[in-house]
Amino acid sequence: MNHTIETILNHRSIRKFKKEPLTDEQIRTIVQSAQAASTSSYIQAYTIIGVKDPVKKKKLSELAGNQSYVEENGHFFVFCADLHRHEKIGQWEDVDVNPSLESTEKFMVALIDASLAAQNASIAAESMGMGICYIGGIRNDLEAVSEVLQLPHRVIPLFGLAVGYPDADTDVKPRLPMNAVYHEDAYMSDEAGMKAELDRYDETISAYYHERTGGKRSDRWTEQMAKMLSGKKRMYMKEFVEKRGFDKR
């Protein structure tokens, strides 16, 4: 096993960082690593916004549900799906690109491009001895986040990425068993087998939480998922996405 794989397998979310800002060189390295990720048809349909302004970081922290680590970290990145520059290219080249930009396919391309870039950035940061935490909470109010970041049409903030040197460590959280996520040649639809795999995973997760919290928590993964998915969350998303010029066709 090489250092890269060790870094990937040792991933955990960090929610408490030292008060040590990243240097410009470190930020540049992380962004360049993000840009090295694969991109569909060379479209590069994303933008990364680094937020240093303490007032803006505080506001984003509030919008994300008062998560302190959005405000207190070494650097905060926001990854955006971005087809704004492509709209401008169409104007400059005198080509009607709008039907393509408004397609579900290009919406998916932008989401995938941004996600691939973000994961490259995360691995780069972790390989440099830093920790990271993805922040989906910025999607609580994308209109307000867009105003804070002054985002133009055809740009959607997808998630934040808090980066910095860990001030507190956590154990690696067990993932689903490989058999539950990796199928060969076809999707394995054996319900009994799936249930057995998830039952075993529930035992692992329950034991993990019990040990981590000193017995205060021992919930199962399937229990967590059922509870979470039983409620509605961010149901404004489709309207916002279409308003921004994405996923309309």
Rank of each mutant, 00 (worst) to 15 (best):
T4L: 15
I5D: 04
E6R: 13
E6Q: 15
I8D: 03
N10V: 01
R12F: 14
S13N: 13
S13W: 06
K18T: 11
K18N: 10
P21S: 12
L22I: 01
L22C: 01
T23M: 10
I27C: 12
T29D: 14
T29S: 12
T29K: 15
T29R: 08
I30T: 10
V31K: 13
Q32G: 00
S33H: 10
Q35A: 08
A37D: 11
T39K: 07
S40Q: 03
S41A: 13
I43H: 03
Y46W: 11
I48P: 08
K57D: 09
K57R: 15
K58A: 12
E62T: 15
A64E: 05
S68Y: 02
Y69H: 15
V70C: 09
V70R: 06
E71M: 13
G74F: 01
F77C: 09
V78T: 11
C80Y: 10
E87H: 11
I89Q: 09
I89V: 13
G90T: 09
W92L: 15
E93N: 09
D94E: 15
D94W: 06
V95H: 08
V97T: 04
N98L: 13
P99Q: 05
E102D: 13
E102R: 13
E105S: 09
K106V: 02
M108L: 15
V109L: 02
A110T: 02
L111F: 03
L111K: 04
I112A: 10
A114M: 10
A114P: 07
A118L: 11
N120F: 03
N120W: 03
A121G: 13
S122T: 15
I123L: 14
I123S: 12
M128A: 04
M130V: 08
I135E: 02
G136S: 12
G136C: 04
N140E: 08
N140K: 09
A144W: 03
V148L: 03
V148D: 01
L149N: 02
L151R: 01
R154I: 03
P157Y: 02
G160T: 00
A162L: 10
V163T: 04
P177R: 08
P177V: 06
P177S: 06
H183W: 07
E184S: 14
E184K: 14
D185N: 14
Y187A: 10
M188T: 00
M188R: 01
D190C: 06
A192L: 07
G193T: 05
K195P: 00
E197T: 05
L198E: 02
E203D: 13
T204K: 10
S206E: 04
H210G: 00
H210E: 11
R212F: 07
W221H: 01
W221V: 04
W221F: 15
T222V: 00
E223Q: 14
Q224P: 00
A226V: 06
M228P: 00
M228L: 06
S230V: 00
S230N: 13
S230R: 08
G231E: 06
R234H: 01
Y236I: 04
E242N: 03
G245N: 05
G245C: 05
D247P: 01
K248N: 05
